[in-house]
Design a protein around this nucleic acid. Structure first.
Lengths: 335, 335
DNA sequence: ATAGCTGGTGTAAGCGTTTCCAAAACATTC
DNA sequence: GAATGTTTTGGAAACGCTTACACCAGCTAT
């Protein structure tokens, strides 16, 4: 059987209290400490996290809620968060919620039963009650990549409004006047679209509601269909701003199917700067999110709260950066 | 504070043993059961997994070791495994090992301290000692996507040899005689390359060692460089078989940079059929892995072992399927 | 009426830790 | 060498649950 603290105590000829103290780096006589260390090594003893958590210590496990791990941007976030967790001695329990409120509730409840130390919620959530409850219980939570204005909750995200604004300004500066946007339901998309609208207004360009499209499905085929509709308009846009790189790829596919050359016939801009935007043909102009900083900050913020070091809630907003590649150019002159 | 079993017992006017029995669906009088259920609801009681695991029950948490979550194929596997875990009431702790033996050892040790019920190891591992130890301890483990012939360990994977064989036969059937292959160090790549060699031999075609390239780096730039070298050969191959879709994208980029048309100048085949192969231009011929079946079977096999239902170890091998798209054609006639 | 069952319930020990507190050991001072 | 102070140690309770076992009613069968 696995050795317990009793076995170590017996082997070392001390009490379990003493063993526990060397485990937790408390004052212990030099000789006892030595003996205990020896015994631990000899028995290959590893304390049970379960038992120690039961007495009030933490589990060093945190719940990571995300909409869908198969989404490359989300997966990359997960990877970064996990890197940080590893550095700091934490483990991550991954939960794909698919934006289903029931799944969110289920996972949160289950992970609470498993005594996780806190939650990171990436990419948004639907079940406001659950999150509110967490907050009321003072359960450590931080939002990653999204914020929720009406809730007093820690969050780390990029300035989506500004991202949308920059993309659109860049396109207008190239001479585009008819710019469509395709987004998702997530609030980050909504912010990017607000930035888009504002940029158009600032350039005294009209905002056409029919050029603003929301995709409720994540799969690429449905995106392709939506983008197709835009392209099949009698007066199609000369540029499309996709609120993330996957959407942008969908637009690329739709354009390709219709033999529209990118960027000659159609300029496309993505968002996130995942490696999709680099591998695409032509490589996509997109908006770079400082993923690593976002993830590290979010994680550190959570740990601060877990350790009770900081009580104050905060919203951190980092700045995105436009990365210009080959999918954008001035519109063709009307012939 | 969170209610405990004592609170429920007091509220219901019964002993904690009775409460525990209703929790575990053991015989309890109808009336008591009713009272207990009422009390649980009233107090919103959720039993602590920690405490019950301490008494010998399981944690319903399993460790999922994988090389890198940012790899789309791996991420998709993670997603599927997690779906199954959700269905069966388990949680997944994600651990990216980057093929570093120390990380593998660290995670396994830590998760054992946290009393996970078992491990799934996806995409291979380096630290044979750790895995061997797990096996000796009868710890439930299953390998996903790889196998390890010299170890008596459960595994679920696709027939990589056959996949490589099929790809290569397909290319020779199109008329290609000079076919390069680019793989990774993982044993699955090695198997695919063996299949490639066998297919060439079966067609009486020579195996040129200089056309067999192993990429030790995962990042796309280095792949591009390696592929570039192949293309810059005085007598370049007319087709390249990439052992996974990411590698294939690297090859596409290298070809594009050199203005080789795909498939006219160069045929490319990938492996895995991730959505990269669909979004690429042209869409890639690739080999489809039945990811969902692989993942579900692996998970179910693990659960069987955890529940002690099946003691016998097995290796499951599923069959891959060639998906022909637009990145392959007959080679151009020499002019 | 009594012995023998049976199903329902409760008592208490145990799981592997941490921690409070008192006791023991040692060191210091006069 | 006694009195005091300072470490170092260990006993025991607590964390929230499961479970072996004992107990007790209410039965049936004799």
């Amino acid at each position: 059987m696995k050795p317990t603290i009793y076995d170590v105590a017996r082997e070392a000829g001390v009490s379990i209290a003493t063993v526990s103290k060397v485990l937790n780096n408390q004052r212990v006589g030099k000789k006892s400490k030595e003996k205990v260390l020896q015994a631990m090594k000899k028995l290959n003893y590893k304390p049970s996290v379960l038992a120690s958590a039961l007495t009030g210590k933490q589990t060093s496990t945190i719940g990571f809620l995300l909409p869908d791990l198969a989404n490359p941007f989300i997966a990359e976030m997960a990877r970064r968060v996990e890197d940080r967790a590893y550095e700091r001695g934490y483990n991550l329990v991954i939960c794909s919620t698919d934006f289903e409120p029931e799944k969110e509730a289920f996972y949160v409840s289950l992970l609470k039963q498993k005594s996780v130390d806190g939650f990171i919620i990436a990419g948004g959530f639907k079940n406001v009650e659950v999150v509110t409850e967490l907050l009321e219980e003072q359960f450590p939570v931080v939002l990653l990549g999204e914020s929720y204005p009406s809730l007093s909750i820690n969050s780390v995200k990029v300035d989506d409004f500004m991202g949308g604004y920059e993309v659109t300004s860049f396109l207008t500066s190239l001479g585009h006047k008819k710019i469509a946007v395709i987004g998702e339901e997530a609030s980050s998309s909504q912010e990017r679209i607000k930035g888009y609208k504002q940029a158009l207004r600032d350039q005294q360009l009209p905002v056409h509601e029919e050029l603003i499209v929301i995709s409720s499905q994540t799969n690429i085929e449905s995106v392709e269909r939506l983008a197709g509709k835009l392209l099949d308009l009698p007066e199609p846009p000369t540029a499309i701003f996709a609120c993330n790189d996957i959407l942008a790829i969908g637009v690329v596919l739709a354009a390709r199917q219709r033999d529209r050359r990118i960027p000659d016939h159609l300029s496309i801009v993505g968002f996130d700067n995942t490696f999709l935007s680099r591998s695409s043909d032509p490589p996509l102009t997109t908006v770079q999110q400082p993923i690593q900083d976002l993830c590290f900050q979010a994680f550190d913020m959570l740990v601060e709260e877990i350790q009770g070091k900081s009580k104050l809630r905060q919203r951190v907003v980092l700045l995105p950066e436009l990365v210009v590649r080959k999918s954008t150019s001035a519109p063709r002159k009307k012939s």
